[in-house]
Design a protein around this nucleic acid. Structure first.
Lengths: 141, 141
DNA sequence: AGAGGAGTGGGTAAAAGTGGGTAAAATTAT
DNA sequence: ATAATTTTACCCACTTTTACCCACTCCTCT
């Protein structure tokens, strides 16, 4: 994260992306989700389609996830400028290190400290979840 | 582990691998897991398929296991360069000894000290697990 | 002893990443 | 409406990292 609020997408991730436009929005946790326009289309349809605007939960999801979304372009050096409002909502400050996570069809962008805290807090859950995978694997086999 | 962060795969293990590409990621404990692309495909499918991105456990597993994964190539001398981020997450320092464990369908890479500590800490669990194995064997027979 | 595989170290060129300067655009003030 | 200031985008130059290749040593087996 440089002092202009730009973030360099590591080449190993960037090379997987075709096109130079990405959609950035608030995630469930204190971080940002970054999608390709196509993936975003899917996700937003999924949320919008889950119920009508007269359902309070749907409205909540729309406000938290759909409304903050913004299209951003990757510049010629492979960086994207994260809009200020989104930076704030994920506690991303310029000039500070950020963590990017690539997960097949989307990315997550975290403030380092927020991410470290998350990992610490979720350690027990993680161990449990891993044990559950074991069950899943054995059932599948 | 040399000072460039490369790790030589012992020939006895290397000869079992067909192809020169491996997938390295964070393991459950403080070490790295190394898979063939085929094995990795299985594992990542298992995790990705276990639920959607709107499930907090799935996200946790994705963040801890899927996101850190990187493809690496074995060089002509039989070494792989361990990406810096992964080296850090397993406390592997260059110029220091590392332990590799070959376990049929995957490998584990440990920092020597971390591995020693793990063995000490897990001694009781190990003895228990061995007892349980005994039960399992007698039931099966 | 010599050949061949295994392991080690390092040099070089290309790619990736970083920072900053300048021009264009937008906003604000006069 | 125009000038001034801020913001944004774009480009270029520099630094760091990575990938690739080659040379050497050591050990083992013939």
């Amino acid at each position: 994260m440089d002092d202009k609020g730009r973030f360099l997408i590591p080449s190993r991730i960037r090379n997987e992306i075709e096109g130079s436009i990405l959609v950035i929005t608030r995630a469930v946790e204190k971080c940002l989700w970054i999608f390709t326009p196509e993936e975003w289309e899917k996700i937003s349809r999924l949320i919008m389609g889950s119920s009508s605007m007269f359902n309070s939960r749907t409205r909540l999801l729309q406000r938290r996830i759909i409304a903050p979304a913004q299209e951003c372009e990757i510049d010629k050096s492979g960086r994207i400028t994260i809009p200020q409002t989104l930076r704030q909502s994920a506690c991303l400050s310029s000039k500070k290190e950020a963590i990017i996570l690539g997960v097949h069809n989307y990315m997550e962008l975290w403030d380092v400290d927020a991410y470290d805290n998350y990992l610490l807090d979720s350690e027990d859950d993680f161990l449990e979840a891993a044990e559950d995978l074991d069950k899943l694997l054995r059932e599948g086999a």
